[in-house]
Design a protein around this nucleic acid. Structure first.
Lengths: 141, 141
DNA sequence: TATTGTTATACTCTATAACTATA
DNA sequence: TATAGTTATAGAGTATAACAATA
C-alpha cells in the first residue's frame, strides 16, 4: 500500500462534504430559530407528515428515542409544538405543530430548497442523478 | 414549497452517508488501535508524507491547531510518534512516526483501501468517477 | 507584533443504562 | 414481559479564547 490518498478515501470525502455543506444551512435553523439539528429534523417530520407520536418520529427519522425526547422538549419550550394524549395508548402523546411551528417549518423548507438548488447548480442533471443515487445507497448500508 | 423530502436534501443525504460509511471503518482504528478520528488523520499524514511539524499538518489536513496538538499528545502517549527540535524554528517540534507508528499506519492504510474497494464495488466506474468528483467539489466549498 | 503550540472552557452530538408508566 | 418516553451520564467532535515561548 502507501499509494492511497486520504482524499480518495470515500468515508473521508463524505465527511468533508457533509461538514462543508451542513455548515451553511446550519446557520439558518440555528441562528435564525435557535434550533439544533435534531430539533429541525423532528420539526420537519411533524410539518411534512402532520401529527405524530414520538415513536413514529423515531421510526421514520431513524432517530433514537432519547434524541427525539429531548428535541420534542426543546420544541415545546419554544412553543413550536403541543402535546395531546393519544387515545389509543396513554404512554404516548400525539405531537402537533403550533401555528408558530408551522410558520417556521415553511420558512425552513423554503430555505432548504433554495440552499439545495444553489448547491446543485454547479452539477449537470446527470451528475445530480448519479450523486443522489450513490448517496442514497451509501446511506442505507 | 412543502414538496421537498428530507431524503432529497443534499446536506442531509451527505450526513447520513458519511455517518453510515464512517461507522464501519471507525471500528478499525478505534477498536484495534485505540485511536480517535483526528489521531488517525494525523498519523496518516505523518505516514504518508514523512516527518512534519504540527503547523504543516494543520495546513495540509485542514485541522485546527488545538485538534492537532491533542492528537499529537495522544499519539505520543501511545508511542506512535516522537518529537525532535526543529532546527529552523524552536517553537516547533518535528514529528516522526516510530517503528510502531509506521506499522499501524501500514495496517490502517491497507485496511482503508480494502474498505473503500468494498464500498465502491457496488458502483460502476462511471458512477465512481462522478461521485468522487462531486464530493470533492462539495468538500471544497 | 505575529506565529507555534498548549491549555481551558463550552457546546453539540452520539450512545447507553436506568428508570416511570403504561400495555 | 415488553414498549413509550424520560433522565442521567460519559465520550467524542467542534469552536473559541487566553496564554507561554519564540520569531
Amino acid at each position: 500500500m502507501g499509494d492511497i490518498d486520504l482524499r480518495a478515501f470515500t468515508p473521508y470525502l463524505l465527511a468533508m462534504a457533509a461538514e462543508t455543506t451542513s455548515l451553511g444551512f446550519q446557520s439558518t435553523y440555528k441562528a435564525q430559530h435557535g434550533m439544533l439539528r435534531t430539533e429541525w429534523r423532528v420539526l420537519f417530520h411533524l410539518g411534512q407528515y402532520g401529527p405524530l407520536t414520538a415513536k413514529t418520529i423515531c421510526d421514520r427519522a431513524r432517530l433514537h428515542k432519547t434524541k427525539v425526547s429531548r428535541a420534542v422538549a426543546a420544541l415545546e419550550a419554544k412553543r413550536f409544538l403541543t402535546r395531546s394524549e393519544d387515545p389509543q395508548d396513554r404512554r404516548s402523546d400525539v405531537l402537533e405543530l403550533t401555528a408558530s411551528g408551522q410558520k417556521v417549518f415553511r420558512a425552513l423548507t423554503e430555505e432548504a430548497a433554495r440552499f439545495d438548488a444553489a448547491l446543485m447548480e454547479r452539477f449537470s442533471a446527470e451528475e445530480r442523478r448519479i450523486l443522489r443515487q450513490c448517496l442514497t445507497r451509501l446511506a442505507q448500508l
